[in-house]
Amino acid sequence: MKRYRLLAVSGLGLAAVLVGLLVFGNLNQNLVYYMTPREALAQRSDYPDGRRFQLGGLVEKGSVQKTSDGLTFAVATTAQPGGRTVAVRFDGAPAQLFQAGIGVVLEGSWKGNAFVSDTMKVKHDENYRPPAQAGDRS
């Protein structure tokens, strides 16, 4: 009984340390799911041409253009215009919900000043609303 209690207490302690590490430890650098355009540009030297990573941001309005085997567009960190953007060349068929203004997470690598990607995931937000009726566009 006593030995078992020791085991349970140490198990709890270990769990607490792990949780603390996850919450407060600076593991975010390694656990990061994607980099924003701002971070990708800042760490450009760490990612030479061909080294793959995930780039996430919003598709800049008015930047989407069709090419022979895919798309080109620009990805911005925020919706506000004027921020730094990354030019993206995407080879392949875009995801179903792809459109200007939507969030995307792209897998690929740098090629010069452009980010070349072959895998796209669409990130939709947590807001749900019915389609805008004619006359009440917001």
Partner: peptide
């Protein structure tokens, strides 16, 4: 909320 995710945050 804690980490950057593809999944959208709570609604």
């Amino acid at each position: 909320v804690w980490w950057r995710a593809l999944h959208q945050p709570p609604t």
